[in-house]
Design a protein around this nucleic acid. Structure first.
Lengths: 151, 151
DNA sequence: CGGCATCCGCCCGGATACTG
DNA sequence: CAGTATCCGGGCGGATGCCG
């Protein structure tokens, strides 16, 4: 689990974040990215954070085995056929799932997670968990006003 | 940093994820959430993963000090006034930033990160970094087809 | 300066109908 | 069974204009 310790050192707050020793270290890393890397990472996150992808990855993970298109339709509640197809194509292009077509009549198509897809799901689940554990904090009333507005 | 080790044990893959010992453990945790918790977490992630919020949090973090509305407009390139206002309101409601109004003429308004906002940014930066380090893997050509389609 | 109100174009995603 | 093709409605976000 990601673990974060904050401590004060003079006016500066030190973030101990396992391998990351402070916040600026993390953003130094971000700054060292090329524009192309940054753009590509942004695309990937935008696509993965869209409405359905995580749901689909989660369903595939829960199943623990390849699922047919129609099984996915059943388990990803509320999704339409078109959007399911579109999303699966995107996930395949990004290397997160594998699509296997069995040339039979009627055709059979199975989808399964790649190791990368599984790993990504773990990362996101960690973030998810971190948020759930702090749900009570996500509230403006919990935000301490450090600066008092002048009279 | 989140660290993930995969190892084979028979047919099962064990994920050592620091405190998380395997994938099912993580999802057991997810399943133990109430519907309300789940929905609230989903809302928060959706809002935070929208187009501008992370950019704004990042800019505030980089600045290291409270920023006025017009400074934010300059540094968050491409955002419109309306959308900046909307996004700031949402971030404030979620307890990620603090808005301080100084009742002067002309008015002055300053925005700054809350500790929670900083912490969230660290979590997301970790995920971001994880993705950037694996950019080369996010590609369908890298996805090994485990199941061979029948003839 | 830091908004709010209004209008508007666009894209996302849903519904439906059809096909190899 | 697992798609494509087409149409369409809602919402998001951008541009512009006005206010305390």
């Amino acid at each position: 689990m990601v673990y974060c310790i904050r401590s004060k050192e003079g006016t500066r707050t030190i973030y101990t974040h396992l391998e990351v020793t402070d916040l600026s270290d993390m953003f130094d890393f971000c700054s060292s990215m090329t524009d192309e890397q940054d753009a590509r990472a942004r695309e990937l996150i935008e696509r993965a954070a869209a409405k359905w992808p995580l749901r689909i990855l989660h369903v595939l993970s829960d199943a623990g085995a390849p699922l047919r298109f129609s099984r996915l339709m059943e388990r990803v509640e509320g999704i339409s056929q078109k959007v399911l197809t579109q999303t699966l194509r995107t996930l395949e292009r990004d290397g997160l799932i594998i699509r296997t077509l069995y040339p039979q009549v009627p055709p059979r198509v199975e989808y399964e997670l790649t190791p990368l897809g599984r790993d990504l799901l773990i990362q996101v689940a960690a973030l998810w968990r971190w948020i759930v554990e702090r749900l009570g904090d996500f509230d403006a009333r919990k935000a301490v006003r450090l600066t008092v507005a002048g009279v």
